[in-house]
Simulated assay, not measured.
Amino acid sequence: MNAPPATTVVEPLTPHLYAPDAVRPLRAKEHFLQADTFVELHVHPWPQLTFSTRGVIRLSTQDGSYIVPPSRALWVPADVPHSITLIEDAELRTVYVHSWLAPPWERCEVLEISPLMRALMLALDTTPDGRAPADPQAPHRERMIAPLLIDEIERATQIRIDVPLPADKRLRQLCETLLRNPADRATLAERATAIGASERTVARLFHHQLGMNWQQWRQQAVMAHALPLLARGMAVSQVATACGYATDSAFCAMFKTATGRSPTAFQHKKPR
């Protein structure tokens, strides 16, 4: 999970100043970050819910990469190393949750944000330790909000827009190259040559490491790229081009096969 090229690299955003505890079981923080900022790999012993009030982010773990537009939030379990890449300027919000409150989920989950969930997250004080909370009643309000927010998290619709990544170094290089440029339509044979392997070897690695074939994985990578573009209101024709499709109809057919819905069903207005 190295920084992509041409990025601004920043250290972890002071999670130690927002550690949840029994008195304050929810802690929230906010940061405005510019596009192409890369937050270095870090880990902490409590789970978190990450979302952006505007802008799209990519959160990466050892096992995969997750695209998070403003209509989604990402649950990251405790002790999972992760890094964040800003796909565009974003107002990043993170809610840390005391472990005894958290759902027993062992993997990251992309969640649809309900209006109530958004309101509860935005109601949390974002003052770090060492400074008096902006709201003197913040600890009391956090304890009141906690059970309702956790209930909303557990009720939320889970959406599969993650892109799993392999452990094999050569295959991971191939996958990360496509993630950086989803419009590149190079064949599997061409990509295999670029990493010094045969097409047959790479095809076998996809099955063994990821449990899917090249076309299935590429489709998930393209979907993860397309969904935030649609969420920002980009025209379907532009999204198709950005994903490497020569025609809108071919892109729409792939999209409907993958989701059962047309791309326009995933276009959202930016939240105010």
Rank of each mutant, 00 (worst) to 15 (best):
A235W: 02
T85V: 03
L59Q: 13
E11D: 14
K169M: 12
E91R: 12
G260K: 13
D36I: 00
R24M: 06
T259N: 12
G260A: 11
G260V: 09
Q215P: 09
E91Q: 13
T7Y: 05
K29F: 07
D184M: 05
P47I: 12
G130I: 02
M223S: 07
R272G: 08
P271C: 03
M254L: 09
F251G: 02
F51V: 08
A192C: 03
Q173V: 01
A192G: 02
Q219A: 14
A138N: 13
T61E: 10
E176L: 15
P25Y: 11
L179V: 14
L92A: 02
S237H: 04
L74Q: 03
A197C: 10
G211Y: 01
P81K: 00
R218E: 02
K169N: 14
D168K: 01
V43K: 05
A224V: 06
S198M: 04
C252A: 15
Q209P: 05
N213W: 06
K29Q: 13
P103I: 07
W214G: 06
A197L: 11
L165V: 10
A134V: 11
M1C: 13
R54N: 04
G244T: 03
G55A: 08
D129E: 14
P133W: 07
R160F: 01
T177L: 11
E142D: 14
R24L: 05
Y96L: 07
T8Y: 02
A189I: 06
W46I: 00
R143G: 01
A192Y: 03
D151Y: 03
I161S: 12
P15M: 08
T264P: 00
A194Y: 00
I145K: 00
A156Q: 09
R200P: 00
E88M: 03
V43H: 04
T127D: 03
R191C: 00
V95F: 12
A3K: 06
S249Q: 11
P77T: 10
V222H: 03
T241A: 12
A192E: 04
T85D: 04
A197N: 00
R155F: 09
Q34R: 15
A231G: 11
E109T: 07
